[in-house]
Amino acid sequence: MIPLSGQLLNLLAAVFLLIAFAMLAQRRILSLIHLYAYQGLVLSLSTLIVAYSTHQPHLYYSMLLNFLLKVLIVPWILHRLIHRLNVQWDVETLLNIPTTMLIGLALVIFAFNLSLPIVQLAGTINRSTLGIALASVLLSFLMMITRSKAVPQVIGFLALENSLIFAATSITYGMPMMVELGIALDVLVGVFILGVFFFHIRNQFDSLELKHMEKLKDN
């Protein structure tokens, strides 16, 4: 019998995966940002529950950091960014959602089966969510591959980072504080730099379509 906290964690993990799938299927940039924020929220909540039930004080800080960064700051920056770039109504046009989802499903089966032997080694209360975290990593990757616009691709990258943190909490109760701080800082700086890049890309090509970047290759 799994304790209540474990059940809640499983539920949150399921919601995490659900959001990862929703991101895979979402065409609108604005909704993608919202989904990203929800994903951050789920991540912080599950960290909070792990922190509470295992009495690990550093996880509280981690949760706070996650919450501030991924639910408030980064979505806010992204919002500003797409307003300034005037792409908030942009819609991804070429996207075969059922096929993408089918590939996603195959990835989930793969990830679940991959995680089963590792899960047996871990001793954490939320170890069974590793499969989901792994699946989310793969799904975020898939999302980055399938997108043709710059902003969704960055969101895919951020979701990838979310999934990694989620995997870390599920298998070893999170990374050391220093590492986590470092990653958080990286994300923040990364978003800033990418934001600046977007402006430059648009100035250069008049669009955020990534296919224009193909021109950069020298031949």
Binding site: P98, L105, F112, S128, G131
Partner: peptide, 17 residues
Amino acid sequence: GTAFMLAVLGTLTHFLL
């Protein structure tokens, strides 16, 4: 199709969790 995939995913999650 999304609904269908989500439902299949539900059964898979059941097996995992």
